[in-house]
């Protein structure tokens, strides 16, 4: 479904991604973790072409992301993405946030888009918030709306870029619950997160990144079970300590 081959990326002289290769199969849930500045957010943004990369190739469902003639808007409309800071559009009501791209990109009609939006809001437990503006919702609620917004496009895969790191602790679970449910429904997911509980529960594979490199890429059981490389050990001991 998603395949990265030898992807490298520089910001000026600074190399943020160094020869990264991995695959996400259909229905698979892959968690990407690593210390801050390790390039994990950059990597996931390369997958839908939000960040350009200089070397290597990325294919999503057979389409090359980096190729010049690729219709990026069309490709992105099949991949859902959820951001660290939610990025709901502040000037549009919750319902409008979920219908906007359905209307303008998928050319669905108002009725169809509205029904879809309501169904998804019900699924994330926010049907009663449809007519509010994003800033009137709590962080956890906003992130659930953002997930609904991405799902409204009927994506073939979902990308999550640290979806819970901007949330207060008491709101993290309401978002993770929605994600777990999604994973159990068989959605293909690539998730940048530090939530190791989530990884243990639903991940098929775990990727550990450090300094722009993929240091570990193994099954969940291998990652948490057998001793890994020194860096991953240190990282795990730091975030699992408390």
């Amino acid at each position: 479904m998603i395949e990265l081959r030898n992807v490298s990326k520089w910001f000026g002289d600074f190399q943020v991604l160094n020869d990264c290769s991995t695959k996400v199969a259909k229905g698979e849930v892959v968690v990407v973790c690593g210390p801050s500045g390790s390039g994990k957010s950059t990597l996931i943004k390369c997958v839908n072409g939000l960040e350009p990369f200089q070397k290597g190739s990325i294919e999503v469902d057979g389409t090359s992301v980096g190729a010049k003639d690729t219709n990026l808007p069309e490709l992105r409309s099949h991949i859902g993405m959820v951001f660290q800071n939610f990025e709901l559009f502040p000037h549009i009501k919750v319902i409008g946030n979920i219908t906007l791209a359905q209307l303008k990109v998928l050319q669905r009609d108002e009725k169809q888009a509205g029904e879809k939006a309501h169904a998804l809001l019900e699924r994330v437990g926010l049907l009663d918030q449809a007519d509010k503006y994003p800033a009137q919702l709590s962080g956890g609620q906003q992130q659930r709306v953002a997930i609904a917004r991405a799902l409204a496009m009927d994506p073939i895969a979902m990308l999550f870029d640290e979806p819970t790191s901007a949330l207060d602790p008491e709101m993290i679970n309401e978002v993770l619950d929605v994600m777990v449910e999604l994973a159990n429904d068989g959605m293909t997911m690539m998730v940048v997160t530090h939530e190791m509980g989530f990884a243990r529960k639903v991940a098929d594979r775990v990727i550990f990144m450090d300094e722009g490199r993929i240091e570990e890429d193994c099954t969940k059981d291998d990652f948490f079970g057998t001793p890994r490389g020194a860096r991953a050990q240190v990282f795990l001991s730091k975030i699992l300590q408390h």
Binding site: K45, N48, L50, L72, P73, E74, L75, R76, S77, H78, I79, G80, M81, F83, E87, L88, F89, L100, A101, K104, V105, L106, R149, A150, M153, L159
Partner: peptide
């Protein structure tokens, strides 16, 4: 990015 990611 959020707008682009939705395919706009």
């Amino acid at each position: 990015n959020a707008g682009l990611a939705m395919g706009l």
